[in-house]
Design a protein around this nucleic acid. Sequence first.
DNA 1: GAGTTTGAAACT
DNA 2: CAGTTTCAAACTC
Length: 665
Amino acid sequence: MDKPPKNPTSQIETPTPKSKVEDSPVFNYISNLSPIEPVKSISNTQTFSSLSFTSPPPVFTSPHPNSHKESRFFRCHNFVDRSKPLESLEGTDFKEEVVVSGIEDLNKEASLEDEEETSIETSSELPQILKSESQTPDHSDSPCTEDVLVEALFDPPRGDGDSGLSSEDVKMLVVREENDTPDCGRLISDANELLVFRSPNDSEAFRCLVDKISSSERRFCAGVKSTKQLDINKDNPANGSSNEHEPLAILPNESVFNLHRGGMRRRCLDFEMPGRRKKDVADDDQQSVCDNKAAGESSSRCVVPEIQKSFSGSTTPIHSQDAVQETSDQAENEPVEEVPKALVFPELNLGSLKKKMRVSEQGGEGESCKRCNCKKSKCLKLYCECFAAGVYCIEPCSCVDCFNKPIHEETVLATRKQIESRNPLAFAPKVIRSADSIMEAGDDASKTPASARHKRGCNCKKSNCLKKYCECYQGGVGCSINCRCEGCKNAFGRKEGSLLVIMESKQEEDQETYEKRTAKIQHNIEVSKEVEQNPSSDQPSTPLPPYRHLVIHQPFLSKNRLPPTQFFLGTGSSSFRKPDTDLTQSRNEKKPLETATEDKTEIMPEILINSSSIANIKAISPNSKRVSPPHLGSSESGSILGKRSHGRKLILRSIPAFPSLNQNQ
DNA sequence: GAGTTTGAAACT
DNA sequence: CAGTTTCAAACTC
């Protein structure tokens, strides 16, 4: 085995060719430790594509052979149903799987990643444990340790020459398998973050891993929590490197895990506040987001950890219990001492995002989270921002006769159901950002507000869509054909003509203008975006609403086929409003599809989003035409709102049948 | 902080 | 489905 010392930074770097991997210090280290030589994976012609990276293939199926093939080993995580504990992966089985996957992989497509993984896996079979900083020789010695190391690279910027991992860039979690058969330590390198889990609970640990592994998700998570982790590490370097399991494990788990569940924290939470760092994780979780922002600030609605989940918007019910539990875990045993002021409803939908969005936007800018001020609705109607956001009212709320409290959980849920029965998407985010923007964040086009749209469109009569009365404006998105507004002057994008097509023609002109405007406006919002988007910085100043979370997920969904859509769709999605759209679109002159290939991928997410959120909407008024949810998978069909100077603009295509999200491939 | 305006949500 | 009412946020002063 040749392991010429190489640049440490390259080790797990994304597209590392196999050789690089071997060259990586880590690899070397492992090699040294183990008597066994790593098997070299078959070289592949395939290169590691960035796309693959971003797309975590989370498939909710439990790991099975296929899964293994594709992703090996830890990749399996991606395929594993998040909701489920990785039981299958645990213990010996896990080990076996790894081996198998490695073999299969050889036969199959081997991308660089695969190669890396393969090599790693192989090595993993060896009794080595990789530790970055705190590695103890002990581990290396023992052939099989109970500790399993999982490495996931989080931050691209890795390359820590020092001791392997810098506390900042790397988080380590050590998972200790106590119960299952001892497993040899494995090194898993997945994208960016190095995680070593050591936790009493295997399943959990794995979950975390799994979750984390999906790169896209990772971002997502990262946005949400990774920052925390980083902070934590910074604050307490020891945590990062050492064995302190709890704290470490906790965060990741939670964040990731929660996310899967659909849990998201409010945007405001996402923002790292200087003050926040100081706080413990536990605090963070327990404390409201607002707290993070500024302890001094008027508290806003404090979001408890649960809230994070709330964002999930998943149909899957979120149990506060879980949240609590997780929280406590995260907090390192710290029980949730404080009763969360704002709790997320057990079941939350993405819908809540809206409010959150607002909050975040505002909050992001420095405004603290807001509280409701309901007098008559008892906070059980969508009038109530808290309720609409899927969170319980908290002390700071000025509501009267509030029933939106944990105490009245049943009532809240019942009401919620009722509302959802009326409008399944009532709690879904109102603003949908197209995947395009996200995907293309780098592009100018992505900056276009047009990329995001209000699901139902506004109905402004007097505000000219220039005030927050306008939901489109409020959401930082331009008006679209879906809007029935009058005298639209939405700075984020006016509703041009009745047809999107028209927009195409015009947009080029307007777009620039919009973008400029938007850029400013959004500038404030960017922070939140960053979280979700690639840390890579492409973050354009798109006026995106907080919903981005959703969007972010989308990529997975589409590519990976993640069922997360399920989250969104939740309620019985009956027909995805295709009829409307179809008709509308087709009628509206549709241009055959112009969708560029690029669009496809990008579109997918959007589609998912739309479909998820929009699909079920009944709330479409006949008058307004809305963009129909594009087809998933099929690159062919889809509507694209985003507009580019050239080709892509709004393309409306009649869409045949709407494929089920699940199917979306 | 009180009052007005506005448009979504809810109701009929 | 359209029209009306209710509601609370957004806005103004």
